[in-house]
Write a protein that binds this DNA or RNA. Sequence first.
RNA 1: GGUCCCGUAGCUCAGCCGGAUAGAGCGACAGCCUUCUAAGCUGUUGGUCGCAGGUUCGAGUCCUGCCGGGAUCGCCA
Length: 584
Amino acid sequence: MNIFSIFTQHVRQAVAELGSDGISLPQAALDRVVVEAPRDPTHGDLATNAAMVLSKEAGMKPRDLAEKLAVRLGALADVAKVDIAGPGFINLTLKASVWPKVLAAAVSAGDAFGRATVGGGAKVNVEYVSANPTGPMHVGHCRGAVFGDALASLLDVAGYDVTREYYINDAGAQVQVLGRSAYLRYCEALGETISIPEGLYPGDYLKPVGEALKAKYGASLHNAPEAEWLPICRDAAIEAMMAEIREDLAALNVSHSVFFSERSLQAPVDKVRAAIDTLRAQGNIYEGVLERPKGADDADWEEREQTLFRSTAFGDDVDRPLMKSDGTYTYFASDIAYHKDKADRGFLDQIDVWGADHGGYVKRMQAALKAISGGTASLDVKLVQLVRLFRNGEPVRMSKRSGDFVTLREVVDEVGRDAVRFMMLYRKNDATLDFDLAKVVEQSKDNPVFYVQYAHARCRSILRNAQAALPDLDLSPAVLASASLDRLDDAGEIAIVQRLAQYPRLIEAAAQAHEPHRVAFYLYELASDFHSQWNRGKDSPHLRFIMENDRQMSSARLALVQGIVTVLRSGLAILGVEAVEEMR
RNA sequence: GGUCCCGUAGCUCAGCCGGAUAGAGCGACAGCCUUCUAAGCUGUUGGUCGCAGGUUCGAGUCCUGCCGGGAUCGCCA
């Protein structure tokens, strides 16, 4: 039950009925009509901008148009009062009987409350993490992983058909380097003393790969030509790294349904070549010379002719090369084939989650998908900004170069996955994030993770205590939903129900904007409403949730608690954070 | 130099495809424990929404130009 969408329909219906007054409006104009909760509660429960956005096309003054709409809206069963205010707002005050209905709907719907249909079952592909399989995941990967995972869950709840995908970069030069690094560890395992040259991966995490290679191949690779040992060492290392990455993701409660190999784009069928041929047939490929970029570090710039994609024809700033000087494909060429493959699999809605340092890549990828799909597919790229790691306000330095970086696993092991996930989502994706390892485990209001989880635990505690105090009361949601909810007439209680009523709309809006952080902020506000009401029971005992001498009131309030539990659980599930039963 | 992101209270940040008097937490100050978890709550304090124009009934939000911070700019991914 989403009162906002219900009333949006009511308002649009009222607008359509203006036809009988000789006022006809284009259908498109209706899309601008919205119903929202006014910031100021004295403006009523719902407000619509209909009269203001339609006045021009109706050829009427906003307030005159509002008068006509107000008459119709005032006749609706759930409306107690209609006011016209300011430049032409129509403010609706709903009958008190509306809120019990909303609460009952939430309680009886359970996990289904908030589930939306805005997605319409449309297929959408969310690609996230896609960390190179050249080592364990470090803390920098965390944010994109959690963001993508939560976004996928959000879209799922909003009614999209979501596929969660990971692109394994197992075809480039980096995995060759990985293979050489693994070979050195293999030599080391054979008893050789090694030194790791600049440019190879120095981390200890390849030692087990070396040992495994020795166990499987003995010394047979040692004096073999590179062409023979490199593919073996490389593949063994990739497999080992991917296994480790999957474990890291599991520790973070991040999941994927598809792991897509970059190499599978080149063999057995060269899909990269096919993609380039498609673009060439369109006339969007040519041989040309790029201008030297200004201001960049271009000391070893060498002007030369190369194969270019005409991305400027699709909104990019310069045309982009597809072939390296050694004749292999650029990463961009592979990525075009990959995104084409996604489109061929039916994903016309594609979302990529990238680190902000890849921001310069967005336009060309969008241009490429537009071109190669003939304009049918679109790509939204969500950039996640840096995470700066602190401990008690002191920066935690990390140097990837030395191989001595903070791994994702270390952070999860130290503070727990719930703290990591919630904090990563308690910020817009494009804002940098300071993550303090000490603060996120603090059990205080400073720490939103704790605050929201505590609200859920407190609710559950109330329900447990209620069962002990009133053992014969049936606290199942189905029964609570039929309690005398009209007895919830305290302003704080109604405010909570109104907050719950916003949840379905919030899910829709957050999903359409691709912004899971809105869910986190909403949960914080709901938790705050609840803690506040809980405390009012101290000064005013008649406001306590459990009233042993008034079973009817207890049932109504416990239904309210159950409604809060329902929404907290639903929202936390989207964020991938556990709704705990008690705090320890 | 080009492109992208950011700039809102002393600090950290929200602000829902433009909407009414711009919000929250922290900090500071003043209060609330015989009580369903005080691991919490209440109140006070606090803003020229970076600057200047523009669009319109209306701009923190959209457009243009500046200022400041960050990222990035063929042969890394």
